[in-house]
Design a protein around this nucleic acid. Structure first.
Length: 385
DNA sequence: CGCGGTCAAGAAATGGACAA
DNA sequence: TTGTCCATTTCTTGACCGCG
């Protein structure tokens, strides 16, 4: 990071600093705001940026209250997922009730205690306009929350509005470097895809505080990308099973399913969080089935490698796991030994065009790219293979 | 001899530093 | 501010070794 960059920034922002200090007055913290953009995955849970948490005076946990632009309050559970703090139960209700859509921007402002005011901006950066705020469909969840809440009266004065705009602008500037850095990846990923709205884009946007996790409910196998359709299926599945812990999603590659030494590579961070800290056998099980597999979880001495081997191949064979299939591993709660439930999302190739795409998958060692993923059709397997 | 486990090397991705 | 280069990290591939 260039010295000149930070230097010029400090020099230029004296007035800003003054206003900023004024705006923080009365709170022993350095940050009041954070901005997030809605992605497909964040419809179900929203990550709170680590940097915000670092500068947030209090510990964000339990239940917080979100105040929508129409003044309604929502109780939202704060949970920790894979070393990330995420807004969980209640968040979806907030999203639905406020008509928040993908690519919308949400500006969170800490008002008091565990209360955040949320400004909703359209994808073009303008404040979202509702036809009639009274018509907004507020689910029963809100009713539950209102009776237990003492709403702050400081939400909609002009000072707030202007400082929000300022902060939004500043925030955009602040994040430009990261966006630029990720643009390379996005450009590469989307180069062959007609639509500009691709998973990798949203992933890269979130990457300022998420290195391995593209979503909040699941961790995606690194260097893999889910198409919108795939992501929707994964999200739908996660929604259905309502996991209490972060799931691991792996798109099957050649190395996962082919050959005598097939294995499933696990991201270091996820493995550290949910797998044993030594080489040992773990248990895999299909939902609703009694049969179990005990692949070896291998962890190299230098902690660089984390993978499932041995009976992993049996699992692959027994369940007819194929190239391009999606495996969702869910740590089983309450079991002393490390056990995982594996949900399978099958890939189907309904026509020749898809088959062609699949050939390109294997031609590049099975690495799933957005291009390839975009034409892969997934169907969830409801019955055992 | 075959299979499974382990490890090393190369490839690819990512992030940081620096110069224009 | 933007583009490029380089270092680091992580993943993939395949070879080697030990055991049955």
């Amino acid at each position: 990071m260039a010295r000149t960059r930070s230097g010029s920034r400090t020099k230029k922002s004296c007035d800003c600093c003054k206003r900023y200090m004024d705006h923080l007055d009365g709170k022993d913290q350095k940050m009041n705001y954070f901005l997030r953009r809605m992605t497909t995955s964040s419809k179900h849970s929203m990550i709170v940026p680590n940097r915000f948490l670092k500068h947030f005076a209090r510990k964000l946990s339990g239940t917080i209250k979100l105040e929508s632009p129409d003044g309604s309050l929502y109780d939202v559970e704060v949970a920790e997922r894979f070393n990330k703090v995420v807004l969980r139960h209640g968040w979806e209700a907030f999203v639905d009730a406020n008509g928040i859509e993908e690519n919308d921007f949400l500006l969170f402002r800490h008002t008091e205690q565990s209360c955040f005011e949320v400004l909703i901006l359209d994808s073009d950066g303008c404040e979202k306009v509702f036809p009639c705020t009274g018509i907004v469909n507020i689910p029963s969840f809100k009713e539950r929350s209102v009776d237990s809440v003492d709403i702050s009266s400081s939400s909609h004065d002009e000072t707030t509005e202007s400082s929000e705009s300022e902060r939004f602008t500043r925030c955009q500037k602040g994040s430009s470097y990261h966006r630029r850095k990720t643009a390379k990846v996005t450009a590469t990923s989307s180069s062959s895809k007609e639509s500009g709205d691709i998973p990798s884009e949203s992933e890269s946007y979130e990457s300022d505080d998420l290195q391995t996790s593209p979503g909040d409910d699941y961790v995606l196998c690194s260097r893999s990308y889910l198409s919108e359709a795939q992501e929707e299926r994964v999200v739908a599945l996660i929604r259905e099973i309502q996991p209490k812990v972060t799931a691991f999603v792996a798109i099957m590659r050649k190395s996962h399913v082919k050959g005598p030494s097939a294995f499933l590579a696990l991201p270091k961070e996820y493995a550290s969080a949910h797998f044993p800290h030594e080489t040992t056998n773990i248990t895999l099980q299909r939902p609703g089935k009694s049969k179990k597999w005990h692949p070896k979880f291998y962890r190299s001495k230098d902690i660089r490698l984390h993978m499932l081997r041995g009976q992993w191949l049996d699992f692959v064979r027994d369940n007819h796991v194929q190239l391009g299939d999606i495996c969702l591993l869910l740590p089983t709660k309450g079991v002393r030994k490390f056990a995982f439930t594996v949900h399978l999302l099958r890939t189907t190739a309904p026509h020749s065009r898809v088959r062609t795409s699949f050939q390109s998958v294997s031609s590049c060692h099975g690495i799933s790219s957005p291009k390839m993923a975009s034409v892969v059709h997934i169907k969830e397997e409801t019955t055992d293979a």
